[in-house]
Deep mutational scan, measured.
Amino acid sequence: TEDEKKIQELLKRANGDVSKAEKLAQSQGNEELARRLREYANK
């Protein structure tokens, strides 16, 4: 999905570090994506 692409892109930029990727999403003002990242990471 589009969200998964965004999540994978963020994870790439954060070198696979979920908490960093989450902070990136939040810094972009994207709380929804940050929440999805957390769920994605907890799979």
Rank of each mutant, 00 (worst) to 15 (best):
T1I: 12
T1C: 15
T1S: 13
T1R: 12
T1G: 12
T1H: 12
E2M: 11
E2T: 10
E2N: 10
E2F: 12
E2G: 09
E2C: 15
E2K: 07
E2V: 11
E2H: 09
D3Q: 09
D3M: 15
D3I: 15
D3W: 15
E4D: 12
E4T: 08
K5P: 06
K5G: 09
K5N: 08
K5T: 08
K5W: 13
K5S: 10
K5R: 12
K5F: 11
K5E: 10
K5V: 10
K5L: 11
K6H: 09
K6I: 13
K6F: 12
K6W: 13
I7H: 01
I7A: 03
I7M: 11
I7W: 05
I7F: 10
Q8S: 08
Q8D: 08
Q8I: 15
Q8P: 02
Q8Y: 10
E9T: 02
E9S: 04
E9D: 13
E9L: 04
E9C: 12
E9F: 00
L10I: 10
L10D: 02
L10T: 02
L10G: 01
L10V: 04
L11F: 00
L11R: 02
L11D: 02
L11K: 01
L11M: 06
L11Y: 00
L11T: 02
K12Q: 13
K12R: 13
K12C: 15
K12T: 10
K12V: 11
K12M: 12
R13P: 02
R13A: 15
R13T: 11
R13K: 14
R13C: 15
R13G: 08
A14M: 10
A14L: 06
A14D: 00
A14Q: 02
A14E: 03
A14S: 08
A14C: 15
A14N: 04
A14V: 09
N15L: 09
N15T: 03
N15Q: 09
N15I: 03
N15F: 09
N15W: 08
N15K: 10
G16L: 03
G16P: 00
G16V: 00
G16A: 03
G16D: 04
D17T: 01
D17F: 02
D17E: 04
V18E: 02
V18C: 08
V18H: 06
V18T: 06
V18Q: 03
V18W: 15
V18Y: 14
V18R: 04
V18S: 05
S19P: 05
S19V: 12
S19K: 13
S19Q: 11
S19Y: 10
S19L: 12
K20A: 13
K20N: 06
K20E: 11
K20C: 15
K20Q: 10
K20R: 11
K20D: 05
K20H: 07
K20P: 01
K20F: 12
K20Y: 12
K20M: 13
A21G: 02
A21V: 03
A21T: 00
A21K: 00
A21H: 00
A21D: 00
E22F: 04
E22P: 00
E22G: 04
E22C: 14
E22M: 13
E22W: 04
E22K: 03
E22R: 05
K23H: 10
K23S: 08
K23E: 12
K23G: 06
K23L: 10
L24M: 13
L24R: 03
L24D: 06
L24Q: 05
L24I: 12
A25M: 03
A25E: 01
A25H: 00
A25R: 00
Q26R: 14
Q26T: 09
Q26I: 15
Q26H: 09
Q26P: 01
S27V: 08
S27H: 08
Q28G: 06
Q28A: 11
Q28I: 11
Q28E: 15
Q28F: 09
Q28H: 07
Q28W: 09
Q28P: 02
Q28S: 10
G29K: 03
G29Y: 08
N30Y: 12
N30M: 14
N30W: 15
N30K: 05
N30F: 13
N30E: 11
N30Q: 10
N30H: 09
E31Y: 13
E31S: 08
E31T: 09
E31P: 11
E31M: 12
E31C: 13
E32Y: 07
E32A: 07
E32K: 05
E32P: 04
E32Q: 07
E32R: 06
E32C: 07
E32S: 08
L33R: 00
L33Q: 01
L33H: 01
L33S: 01
L33W: 03
L33G: 00
L33F: 04
L33M: 07
L33I: 06
L33V: 04
A34T: 04
A34M: 06
A34Y: 02
A34D: 00
A34C: 04
A34V: 10
A34E: 02
A34G: 05
A34Q: 03
A34W: 02
R35Y: 02
R35T: 07
R35N: 06
R35C: 10
R35W: 03
R35S: 07
R35F: 05
R36C: 08
R36N: 05
R36G: 04
R36L: 15
R36Y: 05
R36I: 12
R36M: 15
R36D: 04
R36E: 04
L37I: 15
L37V: 11
L37M: 06
L37H: 00
L37K: 00
L37S: 00
L37G: 00
L37P: 00
L37T: 01
L37Y: 00
L37C: 03
R38H: 14
R38D: 04
R38L: 09
R38K: 08
R38I: 08
R38S: 05
R38V: 08
Y40S: 07
Y40M: 15
Y40L: 15
A41Q: 10
A41K: 08
A41T: 08
A41H: 10
A41L: 14
A41S: 07
N42G: 10
N42R: 10
N42K: 14
N42P: 09
N42Y: 08
N42E: 15
N42D: 14
N42V: 08
N42F: 06
K43A: 14
K43H: 10
K43P: 08
K43E: 13
